[in-house]
Design a protein around this nucleic acid. Structure first.
Lengths: 314, 314
DNA sequence: TAAACTTGCGTAAGTGCTTACGTAAATTTT
DNA sequence: AAAATTTACGTAAGCACTTACGCAAGTTTA
């Protein structure tokens, strides 16, 4: 199929199903060859019943990895053809115990031959092949169990979108959006305090002129995040005013801003980066931890909403 | 799934489908993440349409490896949601040309990102894996194209059943079945001749006492085939009276009998094995060819039904 | 001991494809 | 030019499962 090559390995799902179909379409004819008048879909149930004298619907389903509904349907068809009999359990009247009839057992004998031959044919095909399909499937099952495809794709999305984010220095024209981004999240969780207005209305004076720095995150031409470091003394800066627009979350923008701030603080000769936050903001705290910050107990903060203090030694 | 291990590699079909499901079930959620309101099953059609400005139903089907019926259904759904428009072809009014609307194109842009991320995720998974699933699938597709699973199983069946066939020397109690087996096939195609009765009614005198040999094939305790070598002179034997019961055909019994006769003829010091047959009996002629016999032109035969003569140099 | 939950099962409906079939248009054969 | 065949498409129904739901029977909790 040329399409597969165009689309690339993304088509792995379709391709797997295609191969599965290629293998299973022959099945119906196979049963005819062995003179057993059964439906291919009965096979797993049939096989399971040959292993245990009798079994309940749900138990069979679990064993063969299908739903009880599917087994129930198959059993009904098999019973109609006289391959199995059903028997209600005495102790637990909900349970429906199923076992092979004589006709079923006779068919099972023939199926046993078929099982032998199919196994032999498949094993021979395996021995003819260079790449081990069986092990490859096992490995993929394991890989996807460890981390689902969905999560893998989400990670790739984050990475791609993160690479499209630019971290730029604060410029006067950012004044308005700088305040807006911060006000947005503060109002969502808390209320604006006096000290907020001071820094947000006059970033140039309170932050930059004071020896600090502000970064802005730009995504698709739009400013979607910000973060600042404020000079406390020659050796200590505060990480503050971190804000990311809710529309742009999930793109690792906080991480990128944090990393830029840490780098800048080092350049400015800081030995410690300090911050105040609130334990209510779990994603933020997680981000700080990921950046290397650790909880400390310091002097009280001027901000009402602050209930946790953290520090990073540079 | 424990069942897989019990059943062995015969479950390869189910297992492939299982893995395919594991990969494709995530798909539905994926589209939501990318903010595109499309059905996963639309994807191949969608992708195909982004490659060509417009295309007909059947052509799309061929490209994506599905039936036109499937494409027709998908297009109907997509049109209802306004992703595509249909346009009857002027020159050929049967054709229905489909193209993306603006809404469709916008969705295609988003899908493009999704395609990138999914491809990246899958490629990363491939690079994490040790066994190459992709190549393994390719190889199996090739193997099954060369020889279908059905044929492979049939071969195994033949081999297994062949190994259950015993070739034994003629004993007096075989007299009746020896005649019966031969009469059965002769009557089916021709009519019994005078010379038939001589050899079939008195095998001891005409064949064995004369320095020849008769083999019987036994399957599941029942005599199901026979074949004889008749001495023509010290260096030349005739292969004759080969008969296999129709109920036991397809088990390579003819081959086994033939091989036994060839071996015996060698032991008896023959240099040539000769036979007469009829070109009507194609499977028989094929068997003789497979055993190494070649067509010759010799003196006329006493049997009316003989129209071909063959010989094997030992 | 009643109420709430869990378990086992059957039935219905959905899924994403397929095959089967019918119809109209185009093409080839007679 | 009529008849037969092929092509393009739509619709219906089937396949082998699934999920959703409801009922009855058991078990646990309050």
């Amino acid at each position: 199929m040329d399409f597969y090559n165009k689309v690339g390995k993304m088509a792995i799902g379709s391709r797997l199903r295609g191969l599965s179909d290629l293998i299973t379409t022959d099945a119906a004819q196979l049963y005819r060859i062995y003179g057993v008048d059964i439906q291919p879909r009965w096979w797993p149930v049939f096989y399971s019943l040959t292993q245990t004298t009798e079994n309940s619907i749900t138990a069979i389903g679990i064993e063969i990895g299908q739903t009880h509904a599917s087994v129930s349907q198959v059993i009904r068809e098999m019973a109609k053809q006289g391959f199995v009999t059903e028997r209600k359990n005495k102790h637990d009247k909900r349970k429906n115990f199923v076992s092979l009839t004589d006709k079923g057992k006779a068919a099972a004998m023939k199926l046993n031959d078929q099982h032998k031959d199919v196994s032999a044919a498949i094993n021979r095909a395996f021995s003819e092949s260079q790449y081990d399909l069986w092990k490859a499937i096992e490995e993929w099952e394991y890989l996807l169990e460890q981390k689902s495809l969905l999560r893998r794709v989400q990670e790739e999305k984050k990475k791609r979108e993160g690479s499209m984010v630019q971290i730029v220095d604060y410029r006067p024209e950012h004044k308005c959006v700088f305040k807006q981004l911060n006000e947005e999240w503060i109002r969502q969780y808390f209320k604006m305090e006096e000290s907020d207005y001071k820094a947000l209305d006059h970033p140039d004076e309170y932050i930059i002129a004071n020896g600090g720095h502000i970064f802005m995150a730009v995504y698709e031409g739009e400013v979607v995040g910000t973060c600042a470091i404020i000079k406390m003394n020659d050796k200590k800066f505060e990480l503050a005013k971190m804000a990311v627009s809710p529309r742009a979350q999930g793109k690792s923008i906080g991480t990128l801003l944090g990393q830029a701030c840490i780098k800048k603080a080092k350049e400015l000769g800081a030995g410690t980066l300090y911050l105040e936050s609130n334990t209510l903001l779990k994603p933020a705290i997680n981000l700080y931890l990921k950046l290397g910050f650790q909880k400390i107990t310091g002097p009280p903060s001027p901000y009402e909403r602050s209930n946790i203090q953290m520090e990073l030694k540079l």
